[in-house]
Nucleic acid binder design. Structure first.
Length: 271
DNA sequence: CTTTTGACCTGACAGC
DNA sequence: TGCTGTCAGGTCAAAA
């Protein structure tokens, strides 16, 4: 799933269900995620009150008296809330039961996700400590990117997906943001002008906001906390449109590989 | 320091 | 109907 809009959509759906509730039980059916779910986690979590649910990058953070339960969705993870938990299906790995009776069910076919306990202070955790700014953070502006990319010869698309520079932008939204900013994804990062970086930041924010408004993108696995798909995939300009006519100029969308991932762009609109 | 590559894992799909 | 190869929303770790 799961780039920033999908994680944020899940966060917003879960917030009213979890804030102020206590965990009455946690069941780990398969601990083999990207990192093993700690065997002590059910004991640590049970009885805890969840004070808040935050998002940092693509991590969901359940806050409990300054300690944090961290959840990441990898490529295929989802977290759904059930008032009555149905029978488990394959790839349902973890259940968290709240004192309201609601069950949060973590599903992740490829098991690239993570569920970890992060003691206070959470910001010091290695997974969180080296992250770049959030795209919506005012700090993350053209001046910041211009300075950060000064010594970067790698392609702008790869830089945009580097979480040390800016977080939350994965393959779909990097592809779409570069289309909207009319920037060729292969352009060396340090050769994108400050003015064009300003446009890029604007388009990244706009693209992410529109995607959040549509409930994220559902290509295959992603569903939100209520099991509903997102609809932003209907609004793609470039991603997954190899060979199809550009929705702006009609030229055939082209697909290449960068860093082992597919990149699609319009050879006429993006220069 | 930056950049590139491989690794993790399952399922869907195309082609033979 | 199998079988094989390729691809998929992420990102860490190691090597260059």
């Amino acid at each position: 799933m799961p780039e920033l809009p999908e994680v944020e959509t899940t966060r917003r759906g879960l917030a009213p269900l979890v804030i102020g509730r206590r965990v009455s039980a946690m069941y780990v059916y398969d601990r083999r995620l990207r990192w093993s779910v700690p065997s002590t986690l059910p004991k640590r979590l049970t009885g805890r009150k969840i004070d808040a649910i935050d998002r940092r990058s693509k991590y969901l953070l359940f806050r409990s008296s300054s300690d944090t339960l961290l959840v990441h969705f990898g490529m295929t993870g989802s977290l759904r809330a059930f008032s009555e938990a149905p029978p488990r299906t394959p790839h349902d790995h973890v259940d968290i039961v709240l004192d309201s009776g609601v069950t949060l069910r973590y599903r992740d076919p490829r098991r690239f996700g993570a569920i970890l306990w992060v003691p206070h202070p959470a910001d010091a955790h290695p997974l969180l400590a080296y992250l770049g700014p959030e795209p919506f953070d005012p700090v993350c502006d053209a001046a910041y990117l211009h300075a950060a990319l000064r010594s970067r010869t790698a392609a702008i698309k790869l830089a945009l997906m580097d979480s040390h520079l800016i977080v939350g932008v994965g393959n779909i939204y990097a592809t779409e943001s570069l289309f909207r900013a009319r920037i060729r994804p292969t352009t060396p990062a340090n050769r994108v002008s400050k003015a064009r970086l300003a446009r890029l930041v604007t388009e990244v924010r706009e693209t992410l906001n529109e995607a959040i408004a549509k409930g994220g993108s559902t290509l295959r696995d992603y569903v939100d906390s209520r099991g509903e798909p997102g609809y932003f995939q209907l609004h793609y300009y470039a991603y997954g449109r190899n060979g199809l006519p550009c929705r702006v100029c009609g030229a055939a969308i082209r697909q290449i590989r960068q860093g082992g991932r597919a990149t699609s762009y319009c050879p006429r609109c993006q220069r």
